[in-house]
Structures are given as C-alpha cells and as structure tokens.
Amino acid sequence: MAEERSGEDIVSEYLGQNPQLAQWVETFRGYCETNKQWVARREFILRNMEAFPTIEQGTPSNSLDRLLSLSMVWANHVFLGCRYPQAIMDKIKEMGEGIVVQDAPVRTTRDEIMAKGKRSANAGSDADSCVKRPKSNEVDGRSAGKTAARPVNQKSGPLPQAPAEHQPFFNRLYKAVAWKLVSAGGFGPNLDHFEILRSCVESCKQSLSCVIVPLKDIPDLPAGRTQKEGHVCELRCQTVYMGTGYGRDEAAARAMASKEALKVFQGRKVAVKICRRRYRGKDVEDLMLLDDQPRSQGFPPALSYPFQSEQLEDGSS
C-alpha cells in the first residue's frame, strides 16, 4: 500500500514541479480514458520517456508516437485484456515494471473462451489436444516448476482451460468437506482444520501440498510489518491455491492455512479461477479456489508457483 501511494505521489509531485510538462502530457489523454487508466498510463509514459531521447517536449515526433503506442499497448493489455505478439508483450512488461495498478479488471480473451469450448466438445475423443493441457502432477514447494512438455514460447502461468479442468474435482471436494463438517459439528474454531482438510482431500483421491517458508524470507511483505518471527504456510491441491496462514511454528502456520482454506468452503459453492497476484515481486496469474462472495481485499502473495517453465523462472530470479 505504502509503496503504491508513493509511486503515484512521486508522479504528481514531479508534475507539480514541471507545470509545462504536466500540461503537455495531459494532451495525450484519450477522451474515453478513466482517471484510473490515465493515471497509470501517464506514469508509464513518464517513466519511459527517458528511453526515447529524441522526444522533445511540446513537439510531435515519431518517437513520441512510438512511446504513446507502447503505452497504449500496455494499457490495453492491463485494462482491456488485449494480447500482442510475444516480442511486444515482453517489451511492455519490462517497461511497465513497478507500476502498480490496483484491482485491474479480470478479462477472458477470445482464445481462452474458444479453448474452453473446444475442450468440452472434444473431451474424450482425441489425444492431440491433451498435449496442451497442464500436467496436474503433485506439487510441493521444492518440485515446483517441473511442468515440462509444454510449448516453450507459451507464457508462464496456468492455461486458460485449467479452471474448467479442476472445477469438477473441487465440486467433489466441496461435498466431501460439507459432510465432514456436518459430522464434526459444524465449522468452528475448535477443530483440527488441517486434519479435516487433509482427510477430505484424500477421500477424493488427491493429496494436499504445503509450502512452508520462514516469514523473514518473504520479499513482498508490506514494509510496515514488525514481526519477523514465525512461518507462513501455503496450501495447494492439484496446483490450485487454497489458502495461506501464519503461525509461530510450522504446525500452527499449517493449521491457520487450513482454516483459511476451509473458510472458502463455507460459501454456496467454490470456483477455480485465474487471478492476478504477486509472486516474488511480480504480478503473475495463479489458479485460485474462491467462494461466491465478492472479494474486497487482494490476495496474499504466492509462496510457490507451479506453472512456470524453467526458462522463464531462470529469467525472473
């Protein structure tokens, strides 16, 4: 939070000191742009202007247009959900590094919609299309990223059809958890949350994976946090994120994470969705298990990321 505000503050402070520049930059605003979109794009333009040394303030030029175009590519990607050829995507990702956009809209691209339709249409008939599906092998923190056999040029992250693929399993799990909680006397603070979750998952012929990390090793924590002790646990099942919890020791962290995960099952249904969240200081797309309530706050940063191909992982760390 603090970091975001400062990012925006820096921009407005900078523009306050350069009224002429501010005025000039304001002419780049599109008529249909919302304040939120414009503030973000303005930051993109200002941050990258130095990389285009031929831009002269107040005069139109080809290099200015190129910067504006890239700023639109970035904004179209973030706000409209457009995708561009990989070379361009890489470029704007780099240029947009560090710009924080709070709850950017979640969009489904046409390819993703078509992929969903195709899967259900072809299910059970052809072997080809299976190649593109993610391997849903068991993931624990250490073996994360061993998802080979994927086209190399694919962007890292879950495949668009992954939520639909995992949904049936979690529908089953939802029923299992519901019955288990009924027999345990309902959801409450005095349960062994981890045990309940684990047994339910195993009754559905799957296993739960925990990643436990000491708190001090996590990079994305808000700066103001005083506590440096303790551990954080993240639970996943079939690569789908279920919950995160903090505790003084590993067991407590795991119990808290299980409790968080079980909370999701208190809604009327559970849904697997692709959401954006932080992972190692970057925005990534993750598979998340959510309930039907609208979410007010963001997600805690991810501790593991089982969708990355090795290549990209190398680049990011």
């Binding site: 080809n62 247009d65 190129r66 504006l68 175009s69 890239l70 639109m72 590519v73 179209n76 409209l80 959900g81 457009c82 995708r83 561009y84 050829p85 070379a87 361009i88 470029k91 969009r107 489904t108 691209t109 046409r110 390819d111 919609i113």
Partner: peptide, 20 residues
C-alpha cells in the same frame, strides 16, 4: 501492424478479451 517499433502497434492485438 507487426513491428514492435511501429508507432501504431497498439491497434493490432493478437488476441482480445470478449465480454460475453
């Protein structure tokens, strides 16, 4: 329509969101 150095590259996304 394709070059990363084009000053109108933003008009030509490969894939785009569809709001059902």
């Amino acid at each position: 329509m394709t070059s990363p150095d084009s000053s109108i590259i933003d008009f030509y996304p490969d894939d785009f969101a569809i709001d059902l």
